[in-house]
Computed example of a mutant assay.
Amino acid sequence: MSTARSRLAEINPSPSMFTMGPANHDHEAAARCAVSVFVPLMVVLLMDRIDLAIFVSFGAFTSIYGRNLLHADRLRMQLRAGGMMLVVLTLGTLGGRAGFTEAEMPWALVSATALVAGICSVLAGLWQMRPAGSLFQIFGFAAVASVPTQPPLLDALVATVLSIGFSLAVGLSSRMFSAKARTPLSRPTLAPLTRLQKQVVWVEGSWYVIAAGLAGSLATLLGPALGMQHSQWAMALLSTVLATSAGATHVDYGQLLYDRALETIIGALVGMACVMTPRAWRRWAKKSADPAVVQREP
């Protein structure tokens, strides 16, 4: 890519939405993710503890991180991702028990989720985690806090820890089954972030707070008028439905589909607006010789 095209891509990222990069051992990462999610879900299903499905599902998201890294680097990244998810799910279930739910304290739920979005985004950036951002942590906290019937706390934490541990084992499994793929478990090292990179991390964290807070606020405000009952989806999951179906609460699947579609649209529109706003600012800045100088008429 030429220098001109590189600069254009920085200003206008839209074309990248319609392109796909070359394959890079994608099937291996997909297989690890599938196994990490499928096995814990089958275990809780066979145990007739579908109320724990939401906890093992989010714990299994640990396997998403460090897809093509060496084993040592992947282990460190997944340990951090798993530890972060454990803290988030613990706070989510404690928040749900304290009333941070749509029915009781919807604005507390929106505020807490936005805070989780920003903090986890900053940590993910400083730790150079891939995938970046706090998407899964947002889902995890809001979904767990919104479960109407919380399982016993110890059961939830044990299920989460075991699911995370299984994901870590799956991430290292190729060392046992393939000598060719085996890499040493030496102490990994990461290049330190520059000052500019750290500034970008904090800016992105701020945008996560704005996006999650704005989406949740709009869904909460528009919910009564539009007949929506699950505003946390706009900040947008099946695990919540699984946990709900495990209790005595009646599940209106037509309402769920309606809420999912409408509130996903709200979240997507807010997200796109937050992405396009910095782009518009950069375009304006490039057109101005010195945007910091205010021109005054004589």
Rank of each mutant, 00 (worst) to 15 (best):
Thr160Val: 02
Val161Pro: 11
Ser163His: 02
Ile164Tyr: 06
Ile164Gly: 06
Gly165Pro: 01
Gly165Leu: 09
Gly165Thr: 03
Gly165Lys: 01
Gly165Gln: 01
Gly165Trp: 01
Phe166Val: 04
Phe166Trp: 08
Leu168Gln: 02
Leu168Cys: 04
Leu168Phe: 00
Leu168Val: 01
Ser174Gly: 14
Ser174Ala: 12
Ser174Tyr: 09
Phe177Arg: 15
Phe177His: 13
Phe177Cys: 06
Phe177Val: 07
Ser178Trp: 10
Lys180Ile: 07
Lys180Asp: 13
Ala181Asn: 12
Ala181Lys: 11
Arg182Ser: 10
Arg182Glu: 15
Thr183Arg: 14
Thr183Leu: 09
Pro184Tyr: 07
Leu185Val: 11
Ser186Gly: 10
Ser186Val: 11
Ser186Tyr: 08
Pro188Trp: 13
Pro188Tyr: 14
Thr189Met: 10
Leu190Gln: 15
Leu190Ala: 11
Ala191Asn: 14
Ala191Pro: 13
Ala191Leu: 13
Pro192Ile: 06
Leu193Cys: 03
Thr194Glu: 04
Leu196Asn: 14
Leu196Thr: 04
Gln197Pro: 06
Lys198Ile: 10
Lys198Asp: 08
Gln199Ile: 00
Val200Asn: 06
Val201Ser: 03
Val201Gly: 05
Val201Trp: 02
Trp202Gly: 00
Trp202Lys: 04
Glu204Gln: 11
Glu204Tyr: 06
Gly205Ser: 02
Gly205Thr: 00
Ser206Asn: 05
Ser206Ala: 11
Ser206Cys: 03
Trp207Met: 12
Trp207Phe: 14
Trp207Glu: 03
Tyr208Ile: 02
Tyr208Glu: 10
Tyr208Phe: 03
Tyr208Gly: 04
Val209Gly: 01
Val209Ser: 01
Ile210Phe: 05
Ala211Ile: 06
Ala211Trp: 08
Ala211Met: 07
